[in-house]
Design a protein around this nucleic acid. Structure first.
Lengths: 191, 191
DNA sequence: GTCTATAGGAAGATAGAC
DNA sequence: GTCTATCTTCCTATAGAC
């Protein structure tokens, strides 16, 4: 065994992320973040001099990287477009804990359009997701314009299913959304 | 002219609603609500002894009533199903200020499923909306099961389009969602 | 790099005058 | 019914010891 180490950065970011996803940005107090991570407030400020906003920024970019790794890369990977989408939906299910967790992109977005400290980063993540979905449809020889429209629709359905799941108090809408994803994208049952 | 009157309850609720929709529930402080309404904090507590939570409850039930009046009733009204949906989409556009304002149902919902003080009311509003959409499709002789699935999908698209509009910084997704609503519901272009 | 302690202010909420 | 003034609690953020 090596020297006793303080909390790993990866774990730390994961815990912070979960707090933000469980209560939202505004309701996530430093006291809460401190208790969840086991680090006192002053220690959090040592790692994140910018306070809560910096934490959320780093959590968000971490989530973007995770999405890229687990969702976007598989979409561009090997296998048929249908297979790639199947991988994606599985990963999305994990990403959102089967629909039990809300989406950071929704939680960190300002209610008012084009506002808030995270607007720029959120936009670029949405753009990347739409672009990857469009790409997999292009590979399936779906015309450019239709591919874009369906990609945007898929993202809307994904986000909407998470909202509706929370609204109805059941993860069913999210799960069905994932199940139908292939049809939504390719216009026919995948396999 | 009658006696000088204090702020009308209708206007008051409208202002409170706008604050909640502009910044979200947690970020809406009593100081903010006080300044927006022109009523001092103590006066707000006189009208809403339960404080911010009661305000949000009343705003939410007001929004539910408004939705019922402006969206659900037209859906059950006269005219062909297609016409009724056209009325609905127009009203939805106004309701969400063309996509510039977020949805209270999303903002007041707890990030965690089945939690928070507004979960019950939010659920019943979503249920009513889905039910009305289903009804108009039944009138269009769409089978029960398909009607339900499409109704839920329409609500997902609506909510998702609002999320995506905020995410991309443009109301275009919301506007296109409304434009496509008829096709989503009836499976063909309405007129 | 983590801690205790605390500053300084904003939060929700109430008392009591008018 | 609205106000001023105030209370208490919680918040973000920092100072400084170890």
């Amino acid at each position: 065994m090596g020297r006793p180490v303080s909390i790993e950065t990866v774990d730390l970011m994961c815990i912070l992320s979960n707090v933000f996803r469980d209560v939202g940005y505004e309701a996530a107090s430093l006291a809460m973040l401190s208790e969840a991570t086991g680090l006192k407030k002053a220690s959090l400020y040592h790692r994140f001099p910018g306070g809560k906003e910096q934490m959320a920024h780093e959590v968000l970019s971490g989530a973007g990287a995770l999405l890229s790794e687990n969702v976007l890369v598989p979409l561009q990977g090997d296998g048929s477009p249908e297979e790639r989408v199947r991988v994606m939906t599985r990963r999305l299910g994990e990403f959102y804990s089967g629909g039990k967790q809300a989406c950071l992109l929704n939680l960190l977005a300002s209610p008012l359009i084009n506002q808030g400290p995270f607007a720029k980063e959120i936009k670029s993540i949405f753009r990347a997701l739409i672009d990857s979905l469009k790409g997999v449809m292009i590979d399936a020889e779906i015309p450019d314009k239709i591919a874009l429209a369906r990609a945007e629709r898929a993202v809307m359905l994904l986000q909407g299913s998470l909202v509706l799941s929370r609204g109805l108090g059941t993860t069913r809408p999210f799960k069905e959304c994932l199940k139908n994803m292939s049809v939504e994208l390719f216009g026919a049952v995948g396999e």
